[in-house]
C-alpha cells in the first residue's frame, strides 16, 4: 500500500497525559501511528480525542495553562524533549481543523503561500510552482486556477476545506492531523475530502479525529476508540482499544467499544 517513492514517517505515543491547568483530561495514552496509514480516533463527545490529536503537534499547549506530559515520537525524535522548537514541530506535523478556514485578509494564492513565506521562501517562480502543486494535490487547482487573486472567502465550505488542506501540504509535512475535517460540510463535499485523504495516504501519514463512525470505517486503516469515564468528580477520557479498523468494527475486544459501535452509548 505504501508508495516507496515517498518517505515513510511514523509516530509513537507513550504515556501521553494532556492537562488543562491542573486537570488531567485524558488517562495516559499509548498509541502507534504507522507510516502511510490513516489512523482514525473515534469516541463520544468529551472523550479527549481532539485533545490527544492536538498533543501530537504541540498545538495543545497554545491554549492558556494547557500542557502535556509523556513522550510523542516522530520517527526517533521525541517532540516533547527539551530544546525542541514547537514551531518547527508544527511544520513537520501539519493540522487541518474542523471549520474550513480561509485567512480572511488573504487571496486564495496567499492562503497557500503564507506557509511557504514563513519558511523563508521568497522566489516568485518557486512560490508559483509550489502553490500550484499544493492546489493540484488538494484537487482544487481546476476550480480556482482562474481566480487565485480572489479572496479565499469566495469559495464554498468544501472548497475552503480543501484550501486548508492545500495550505498544510504546501509546506510538505511528514504527518497531517485532521480534527473532524468534514463535520461542517455537506455529504458531497465530505465525499471529496474522503477521496482526497485516500490519495494523500500515498504520500503522508494521516491521523483523523471523526464523530462519524461510517467515515472511520470507510477510510481508515486502523482505529483507536476513546471513551469518557464519568465516575470521578471530573470526567476523564481514556483510550480503550486500538486495532485494525476491520477488527474494531467486526469483533471489538472491549465491551465499551462494542456498545459504542452498536449505538448503545455515546
Amino acid at each position: 500500500m505504501a508508495a516507496t517513492a515517498h518517505p515513510a514517517h511514523s509516530m509513537t505515543v507513550r504515556g501521553l497525559k494532556p492537562f488543562y491547568a491542573k486537570r488531567q483530561a485524558v488517562q495516559a495514552v499509548d498509541l502507534d501511528v504507522r507510516a502511510h496509514e490513516i489512523l482514525a480516533l473515534i469516541g463520544p463527545s468529551g472523550c479527549g480525542k481532539s485533545t490527544v490529536l492536538r498533543c501530537l503537534n504541540r498545538m495543545h499547549e497554545t491554549i492558556p495553562y494547557a500542557h502535556a506530559e509523556g513522550s510523542v515520537k516522530l520517527d526517533d525524535l521525541d517532540i516533547y524533549q527539551a530544546g525542541i522548537d514547537a514551531t518547527l514541530v508544527r511544520r513537520k506535523i501539519g493540522m487541518v481543523f474542523q471549520m474550513p478556514i480561509a485567512l480572511r485578509t488573504r487571496s486564495i494564492y496567499e492562503n497557500i503561500a503564507v506557509g511557504l513565506r514563513l519558511g523563508g521562501m521568497n522566489d516568485r517562480l518557486e512560490l508559483d510552482r509550489r502553490v500550484e502543486q499544493a492546489l493540484r494535490s488538494a484537487n482544487l487547482w481546476d476550480e480556482v486556477k482562474d481566480k487565485l487573486q480572489l479572496s479565499g472567502l469566495a469559495l464554498s465550505g468544501g472548497q475552503q476545506q480543501r484550501l486548508s488542506i492545500a495550505r498544510t501540504i504546501a509546506i510538505e509535512p511528514a504527518v497531517i492531523l485532521f480534527d473532524e475535517p468534514c463535520s461542517a460540510l455537506d455529504p458531497i463535499s465530505t465525499l471529496k475530502i474522503e477521496e482526497l485523504l485516500l490519495q494523500l495516504r500515498e504520500r503522508y501519514t494521516l491521523v483523523i479525529v471523526t464523530h462519524n463512525m461510517q467515515q472511520a470505517a470507510r477510510i481508515s486503516d486502523r482505529t483507536a476508540v476513546f471513551m469518557v469515564e464519568r465516575g470521578q468528580e471530573q470526567p476523564v477520557g481514556l483510550l480503550v482499544e486500538e486495532g485494525s479498523t476491520e477488527q474494531i468494527f467486526s469483533k471489538p475486544r472491549d465491551r465499551r467499544t462494542e456498545e459504542y459501535i452498536s449505538g448503545k452509548v455515546g
Binding site: 503537534n57 498545538m59 497554545t62 514551531t87 518547527l88 514541530v89 508544527r90 511544520r91 501539519g94 493540522m95 481543523f97 471549520m99 478556514i101 485567512l103 480572511r104 503564507v114 506557509g115 514563513l118 519558511g119 486548508s164 495550505r167 498544510t168 509546506i171
Partner: peptide, 13 residues
Amino acid sequence: NHQRDVMLALGST
C-alpha cells in the same frame, strides 16, 4: 481563534 490556530499550525511564532 481559528485565524490564529491556522497560523500556529503552520509553525508561526
